[in-house]
Design a binder for these strands. Structure first.
Lengths: 128, 128
DNA sequence: TTCATTGCAAAGTTTTTGCATCTTT
DNA sequence: AAAGATGCAAAAACTTTGCAATGAA
């Protein structure tokens, strides 16, 4: 399955896609910007926004909108999972367990095809 | 349970809270602004933003983020519920049943304080 | 060499803040 | 009268866009 990112494969696009793929949870544009700007490399904010849009329309990443209203992006190839949002530090991480068992695919007369769960609380690090 | 809105009860705060409470669904800041500015009354945008924050921190309203990424607000007194988003007609409805039983208030080392679930599928009307 | 892509800076949007004035208590 | 709340306008924050320079093919 060839991954096509725009019409040309550039260093910036590779880096941005890698950052999103390797993150422990969905990342915001600000988080991508910080990760993309190190001593060795530097990517402009406009490129980040443009690349995120490009990756979205190529279905290589997908957006996750949590109840905090902040848009975040994650690799589109991930298995079914949910998200945990720390009320203290704001970090969002993936939760691979799914405690919902939809034997019942119907709720209140509606046919359920999928679901998204966001947990809120205090993360492992903030509890310490 | 007395409802305290800030330290003073003002007309603006009453109006904004009423708009949110009486709306048929969660409303955005823009929608509140439009509803609050009629021939008879006029409320500034800064007051809307300030009041929404105040109502949120007083837990009189809560924010809901629909798949369009826009932040919306609803009365917090609605019982614990979730949302169903119809993939066909786009309508969002409340789901009053909660099939999640968090006997376990810890997941992957994180302390769980609350959760939100969004179901996606085909609504009752679209199935007909 | 060609032309898509980048980075900067300017322009749009959205949200917050400072401050003088107004209103609640 | 005192102190919180409002409205305006300015400022800050967040996104998008134009354009000359750059770099992938």
């Amino acid at each position: 399955m060839p991954k096509k990112i725009g019409q040309r494969k550039t260093q910036q696009r590779e880096i941005i896609f890698e950052i999103i793929k390797n993150a422990p949870g969905p990342v915001s544009v600000q988080e991508i910007l910080e990760a993309a700007n190190t001593d060795e490399q530097s990517i402009g904010i406009a490129t980040i926004y443009r690349t995120v849009k490009l990756l979205l329309s190529s279905h290589l990443i997908q957006s996750v909108t949590l109840p905090d209203g902040q848009a975040r992006y994650e690799n589109a190839e991930l298995a079914h999972h949910h998200h945990f949002h720390c009320n203290k530090c704001g970090v969002v991480t993936d939760i691979n367990e799914c405690c919902m068992h939809l034997h019942d695919n119907e709720v209140a007369g509606n046919l359920i095809e999928s679901h998204e769960i966001t947990f809120f609380g205090v993360c492992k690090a903030c509890r310490a």
